[in-house]
Amino acid sequence: MNTLVIAEHDNQTIADATKKALSAAIALGNDVHLLVAGENCADAVADAAKIDGVAKVLKADDAAFAKLLAEPLADLVVSLAESYSAIITAATTNGKNFMPRIAALLDMPQLSDITAVIDADTFERPIYAGNAIQTVKVSSAKKIMTVRATAFPIAGEGGSATIENLTSTGDKGISEYIGEELTVSDRPELTSAKIVISGGRGMQSGDNFTILESVADKLGAAVGASRAAVDAGFVPNDYQVGQTGKVVAPELYIAVGISGAIQHLAGMKDSKVIVAINKDEEAPIFQVADYGLVADLFNAVPELDSAL
């Protein structure tokens, strides 16, 4: 039996998160097929075929899959499920949305956010915002899993997978896409950026985030935020790093005016190097920071900006 991975893509290229989830899929030891569902997704299919370790790319090109809505996508995957013993996707907001629907339609349990593959049946996953790590064994006929992308290396290039065209299973029409409001930014995407600079409640306002943006632009960094900053309305929710937001693991994470609640640490503590800038020297963020600077951020951040 083979492993099916459901790809996330922009019709041009396969997302890094999917390429990392592929590493988890390959670790299961079976042939890996990659499903690219979308509308006018030929370029993404071509990109998929080049990924090392992908034996076959399944192409489902139809208007029904244009926005990867859970209802039509789940019906498509269920129609394919018979020949797979594992179905895997990255734990992005898309993956988190459609995967449990697939699992329930197949009457299978799901493992969310796995962070390690111990063997073909045994996996690790964080619970309680990463304050505990569960080792779990699944004996169900199919393993349905979402993968925490930051925990796995990115699959390389150099493959030459065959491409199979699928017949669309259509759309029952119970859900309809209306529109999107996407954050427009020239900065790298938060979950794949090599450097992330995040602000917390200490930023005091959304306008003050401009001082972080200036540093971010010099470093080629993404800008993030704590839940407190999102709750206070400083920045949109898609900036949020933490248990209920995004999980990041960049080379360098700079936490500015963030106290370090466990829910925030859950989203960034696997970063390689952590810097904390906070005027409260008792702030818990300093317990995980490699380099801590006790200072008023409104002095320190502009100084950092001019030092770069």
């Binding site: 569960q134 064994k137 952590i274 995980v288 380099y291 801590g292 600077l293 030092a307 770069l308």
Partner: peptide, 27 residues
């Protein structure tokens, strides 16, 4: 349950690093 919990462990502890005095030292 269909999922067997083998064990629940503490996550690896991240050691606190050093405090720096100035932005210059940090950079």
């Amino acid at each position: 349950p269909q999922i067997e919990i083998i064990k629940v462990a503490e996550p690896p502890v991240r050691e606190a690093g050093v405090k720096v005095e100035t932005v210059e030292e940090l950079v």
